[in-house]
Design a protein around this nucleic acid. Sequence first.
DNA 1: TCATTATATCAAAAAATTATTAAGAAGTCC
DNA 2: GGACTTCTTAATAATTTTTTGATATAATGA
Lengths: 220, 220
Amino acid sequence: MVDILIVEDNEEICSLLADFLRAENYTVSIAKSGEKALSLYEKYGARLVLLDINLPDVDGFSVCEKLRKTDNVPIMIITARTNRDDKLNGILLGADDYIEKPFDIEILLAKIKGIFKRRLAHEIISDGDITLNISNETVEKNGKFISFSAKEFELLKILMQNKGQTLTKEFLFNRVWGIDSESEMQTLTVHIKYLREKIENDPKDPQKIVTVWGKGYRWT
Amino acid sequence: MVDILIVEDNEEICSLLADFLRAENYTVSIAKSGEKALSLYEKYGARLVLLDINLPDVDGFSVCEKLRKTDNVPIMIITARTNRDDKLNGILLGADDYIEKPFDIEILLAKIKGIFKRRLAHEIISDGDITLNISNETVEKNGKFISFSAKEFELLKILMQNKGQTLTKEFLFNRVWGIDSESEMQTLTVHIKYLREKIENDPKDPQKIVTVWGKGYRWT
DNA sequence: TCATTATATCAAAAAATTATTAAGAAGTCC
DNA sequence: GGACTTCTTAATAATTTTTTGATATAATGA
């Protein structure tokens, strides 16, 4: 697993970034196209993705979506200031951070450090008797490990990461199952039940994953 | 056994490196081609290989793979910055460290020291009733030696080195079988079974090498 | 209250993933 | 070359996860 995956087709910017990041002792891997980005990520992973949204082949948007779907890895987006459209806005809102070209390398470094710091603090989320370890993909209740399936874990993770917030069913569904999933919304409620079965003291009277009628669910 | 095997075809760089390293009291042997590198390594061994990836005959890639496959000796790669392609990325990611030409000799020395230090600390991994000795390639369970094949050992090593972390099947496969191996993923699961047979108290109910469904495996 | 709508539950089918087995290929060592 | 171990493959079995559909239960508002 490398620290930073750089996705950027411009040769100059690319080596500039790589040099600076290496000087800061980050390990980096480099992709010059969207496709390569995905294959590199699949093979070696990354703790942070630095993504130029204007790529030659697969556009940055779909790279972004795919990455977010699979691993929820932090993504920092590099973008030109021009033609800021609706689609771009959407992506940026979901990104952990973004920076506009032309950018000051020092500011970029500061942002990256910030993301790592924040994430590190959030790699283990503990709340009440539930502890969720994102990097190890483990969940403990009262110190005892409980096994979770991939979907269950993802769902619980998103809920806990947004403590106190009501998340709509659509939002949860899109995050866990993906935007163009063919599954029914029904599947979500069933998974909510599975979660409650595993983590609630009394699954019949859920205190942790609360139903918000007509909206969705909330972790409290 | 020498301390450092230098693999570099450029005469000047070669003697420069040798001088500096000898000045730091390392013993060195020198190979000016890939073929010679392999034969020298076979004859005298080395604690660390300093490998220029751009060689005249056998390219550095295959030297690297061969070394890694046989002994897993630490390899430090010297590379020019240009044409950083997928293959190179792959090699670099697996390398213990790498440095780009032109390099500062002081930085190189620091890196080499770092590698020796790290390796020394990790030569024996002990966890529960399993003890793994990396330099001897031996494994003990409750003090009794168990024989392991090369692939089995490598797999166990990576798992134990990353205790508690879930390692994806792809990651494990790339590490043990190599990036462009033609083997099937199936091979991995079979080897996992072999490992379990040897180290688990009840192979039917594995406690050490745990399956993480949809992801991979984890040493606990 | 009653009709309506939203969520919960259940169990079984479907899909996906991993485990097991055994046999043959490939490599190693005398 | 023969005996041996290791590695790979392919087929099948076993297991787990995911989805679905039917039905039950609960909340909401006229």
